[in-house]
Design a protein around this nucleic acid. Structure first.
Lengths: 252, 252
DNA sequence: TAGTGGTCTAGACCACGGG
DNA sequence: CCGTGGTCTAGACCACTAT
């Protein structure tokens, strides 16, 4: 046995497939073009459909492909750069953003938000739903939690459910002086309701952006925004002026 | 046909399974505990192993589980909050961070970085590899690209490959005055080399953090950091002082 | 060597979208 | 209606880890 391991790296088929497809996408396909269907592709590469799908899943995760049931698989455009916390510390609902108020209710927030708000486990909290549309595409769905204690005027709101009520809550928020905010980003999978707003299937990969807004009095509101991970690139500009505008694939 | 659709929502099995497992994790398992193996679980729930795996994959994506080949599936601890761009605008390599310089070479950067650097397609660029370890765990692998034109002293570096050379490049960077930086976060899958550093399989979901550092003269360096998406929650503190310290699951 | 998760196959049926 | 991707099955073998 004179052989010393000699790079015995049986690369998984789906991984190799992904590489091959990726190169093909760069060279032979234009954005928006539809690929052959999965059965066809699997046959062409001599693998089972499940294996082919594993490769496609990865490419979709990387934002290279877009798959829609009943339609087909298309080449995705470069990810949209969406600004997060672009302008210097400002409250949600400030004029000029791409957010659309949808509804507002009073409810007990989920455990995840409870910990951040610091409210009691049975405390009702104003909950505002907003969606964000950029360049015609839905990119994010948000739930904003505002405890009644944060803004005195909140309890006087009597607008019926719907966008009007959502706007009313946001308007009250503007009265406060925002001292600062902090934010975290993590990977998640879309809940059924968010998936619907985002035009995706439940479980789709999303970027969870959690923002805490505080005033001198403490945490005034918490926002949990769900961004489509397949189509979005979140941008943060520390200087406020410049924007990352790279386009990775086009440069090759 | 007097029925009006009546909620015909055949929820996929793996989705329902995920919910059931998720609740079981909250109630009956402690962090670090190992679950029964996949064949056992599949049998217990009366589904094929592939279906069970689909549910486990989602839970792993959400950071609830950790799976290791040859070992088993364990309950994951809450995600680590890792600060990104914590201190006010500072160069990479500033003292006191958790980054470990690994190596430095001169190479042609990948297309993705090329566009950001604005260098020619055949231009050699100083490339520094660093890894980040937080609380004993590898959380990120980074490639930092510094064009020779950015810092005069760079071409004089003659340290042999290895950490020493990496430190030398970083030291040169500190001479410049940092004017600002911008940053973007997106979902990706780990390349083979990054996966190795992160102790994961190739293709594992990662958060790609791209940072552009600039001086008055323009873009001086670009960093592409690959964070483990399963174990990390990236935190951004706009005020510099406060840190999100929530622990979602513990609060239920 | 035994037991784990990772990969792969070759089928089947279902849900959705568009003609 | 047909064609698409999405779900599901019941197997098989491989790669890795711990003992």
């Amino acid at each position: 046995m004179g052989t010393t391991q000699l790079e015995t790296v049986p690369e998984p088929k789906y991984w190799h497939l992904k590489t091959v497809l990726s190169e093909a996408l760069d060279q032979d396909f234009a954005v928006g073009e539809v690929l052959p269907n999965e059965r066809e592709l699997a046959a062409r590469f001599g693998v089972a459909r499940a294996t082919l799908r594993q490769a496609l899943e990865q490419l979709e995760l990387e934002g290279r492909l877009q798959r829609r049931r009943g339609v087909g698989t298309t080449v995705a455009p470069p990810r949209l750069g969406v600004a997060v916390g672009s302008a210097q510390h400002c409250w949600p609902g400030e004029s000029g953003d791409d957010w659309t108020p949808v509804d507002a209710t009073e409810a007990v927030p989920p455990a995840a938000a409870l910990g951040l708000l610091g409210t009691a486990a049975d405390q009702l909290v104003h909950t505002v739903r907003r969606t964000r549309v950029t360049q015609g595409q839905p990119v994010a769905a948000e739930l904003l939690y505002v405890p009644a204690a944060s803004v005195p005027g909140l309890s006087a709101i009597d607008a019926p459910a719907g966008p009007a009520r959502a706007r009313a809550v946001l308007r009250e928020l503007q009265r406060l002086v925002l001292e600062g905010q902090d934010r975290s980003v993590e990977l998640g999978s879309a809940r059924a309701d968010d998936a619907k707003e985002l035009d995706r299937l439940p479980g789709a990969p999303v970027l969870l952006v959690t923002t805490r807004y505080f005033t001198a009095a403490g945490t005034a509101a918490v926002s949990v925004a769900t961004y489509r991970a397949d189509t979005c690139r979140l941008t943060f500009a520390d200087t406020g002026d410049v924007e990352i505008t790279h386009d990775a694939r086009a440069a090759s």
